[in-house]
Simulated scan of single mutants.
Amino acid sequence: MAADILSDVLKEVHLSGALFFDVEGCAPWVAEAPPSCAFKALIMPEAQHVINYHVVANGACWVRLLDGDAEPIRLTAGSVVVFPRGEPHVLSSEPGLRAPFDPAVFKAPLPERLEPLMLSRNGDGPGTVRLICGFLGCDVLPFNPLLASLPGMLVITDGYSERDGWLASLIRAAVTEGRAHRDGGHNVLSRLSELIFIEAVRIHAERLPAEARGWLAALRIPHVGRAIALLHDDPARAWTLSSLARAAGVSRTVLAGTFKETLGVPPMSYLASWRMQIAAGLLADTERSLFDIAEAVGYESDASFSRAFRRATGSSPGAWRAQRH
Rank of each mutant, 00 (worst) to 15 (best):
P209F: 03
G134Q: 10
Y160R: 13
S242M: 09
P317E: 01
L150N: 04
Q277H: 04
I196F: 08
R220G: 06
I171R: 01
R113N: 05
P111M: 08
A70H: 15
W29P: 02
K260Q: 15
F309N: 00
S120P: 15
V254P: 05
K260W: 10
N187V: 11
R202E: 06
E94P: 05
F135V: 03
Y53L: 11
A245H: 09
R74E: 14
P28W: 05
A108H: 12
L195N: 15
P88R: 03
L65H: 03
G249R: 06
R307Y: 04
H54K: 14
L283N: 09
P84E: 00
A31M: 09
S36A: 15
L147R: 13
L219E: 01
E115G: 08
L131H: 12
H325W: 05
R172M: 12
S92Y: 01
L208V: 07
F21K: 08
I51M: 12
A212E: 05
E71N: 12
A279N: 10
G318Q: 12
F39K: 09
P45V: 04
A38E: 11
A256H: 15
A205F: 03
L189N: 05
T313N: 04
R275Q: 10
A212R: 00
G298L: 08
L97E: 00
G184T: 01
G257Q: 12
P72Y: 12
V250I: 06
R74L: 10
Y53A: 13
K11L: 04
Q48V: 05
Y53M: 11
G25F: 00
H49S: 06
P151F: 05
A99Y: 03
R74P: 11
S251R: 11
E115N: 10
R74M: 14
P95D: 06
M118D: 09
D285Q: 15
L192H: 02
L255S: 12
H54A: 11
I278T: 04
Y53F: 15
I293S: 04
R191A: 14
S315T: 10
A108K: 14
Y53I: 07
L136I: 05
E112W: 14
S169H: 11
P111K: 03
L263Y: 01
A38N: 11
C26A: 13
L119V: 14
A280P: 07
I43F: 03
L6Y: 02
H186D: 11
E261T: 13
A229D: 07
